[in-house]
Amino acid sequence: TEEYEYTDEQQAREAAREWREKGYTVTIEEHNGRWRVKTG
């Protein structure tokens, strides 16, 4: 599992979409105004 943090929701969603296209399972969670994208 890798985790990436973004301050911008749009960036987080874009990144998540790219990971999904590569076949990863992706979770996005908002935490204190930051967006965490977890792949695994």
Rank of each mutant, 00 (worst) to 15 (best):
Thr1Ala: 12
Thr1Gln: 12
Thr1Gly: 13
Glu2Arg: 14
Glu2Leu: 14
Glu2Phe: 15
Glu2Asn: 14
Glu2Gln: 14
Glu3Ser: 11
Glu3Met: 14
Glu3Gly: 08
Glu3His: 10
Glu3Asp: 09
Tyr4Lys: 07
Tyr4Ala: 06
Tyr4Val: 08
Glu5Met: 10
Glu5Leu: 11
Glu5Ala: 06
Glu5Ser: 07
Glu5Ile: 13
Tyr6Thr: 03
Tyr6Ser: 02
Thr7Asn: 12
Thr7Trp: 12
Thr7Met: 13
Thr7Pro: 13
Asp8Met: 05
Asp8Phe: 05
Asp8Ile: 05
Asp8Asn: 12
Glu9Val: 07
Glu9Gly: 04
Gln10Pro: 05
Gln10Trp: 13
Gln10Asp: 12
Gln11Lys: 09
Ala12His: 00
Arg13Leu: 14
Arg13Glu: 10
Arg13Ala: 08
Arg13Ile: 13
Arg13Trp: 10
Arg13Thr: 08
Arg13Lys: 11
Glu14Leu: 09
Glu14Asn: 10
Glu14Met: 08
Glu14His: 08
Glu14Tyr: 06
Glu14Trp: 06
Ala15Pro: 00
Ala15Ser: 07
Ala16Val: 08
Ala16Leu: 05
Ala16Ile: 04
Arg17Phe: 07
Arg17Trp: 07
Glu18Ser: 11
Glu18Gly: 09
Trp19Leu: 14
Trp19Ser: 02
Trp19Arg: 03
Trp19Ile: 04
Trp19Met: 08
Arg20Trp: 09
Arg20Ile: 13
Arg20Phe: 10
Glu21Phe: 06
Glu21Pro: 01
Glu21Ala: 11
Glu21Lys: 11
Glu21Gly: 06
Glu21His: 07
Lys22Pro: 00
Lys22Cys: 03
Lys22Gln: 09
Lys22Arg: 11
Gly23Glu: 02
Gly23Arg: 02
Gly23Asp: 02
Gly23Val: 01
Tyr24Lys: 04
Tyr24Asp: 02
Tyr24Pro: 00
Tyr24His: 05
Tyr24Ser: 02
Thr25Asn: 11
Thr25Gln: 11
Thr25Gly: 05
Thr25Asp: 10
Thr25Lys: 10
Thr25Ile: 13
Thr25Ser: 11
Val26Glu: 00
Val26Ala: 07
Val26Pro: 03
Thr27Ser: 10
Thr27Arg: 06
Thr27Ala: 07
Ile28Ser: 01
Ile28Val: 12
Glu29Trp: 13
Glu29Asn: 06
Glu30Val: 10
Glu30Cys: 06
Glu30Asn: 09
Glu30Asp: 05
His31Tyr: 12
His31Glu: 10
His31Ile: 14
His31Pro: 01
His31Asn: 09
Asn32His: 08
Asn32Pro: 03
Asn32Lys: 08
Asn32Val: 03
Asn32Glu: 11
Gly33Met: 03
Gly33Glu: 03
Gly33Thr: 02
Gly33Trp: 02
Gly33Gln: 04
Gly33His: 12
Arg34Pro: 01
Arg34Thr: 13
Arg34Glu: 05
Arg34Ser: 09
Arg34Ile: 15
Trp35Leu: 01
Trp35Gly: 00
Trp35Arg: 00
Arg36Ser: 11
Arg36Ala: 08
Arg36Leu: 15
Val37Ile: 11
Val37Ser: 00
Val37His: 01
Val37Tyr: 02
Val37Leu: 09
Lys38Phe: 10
Lys38Trp: 09
Lys38Glu: 06
Lys38Ser: 10
Lys38Pro: 02
Thr39Ala: 11
Thr39Trp: 15
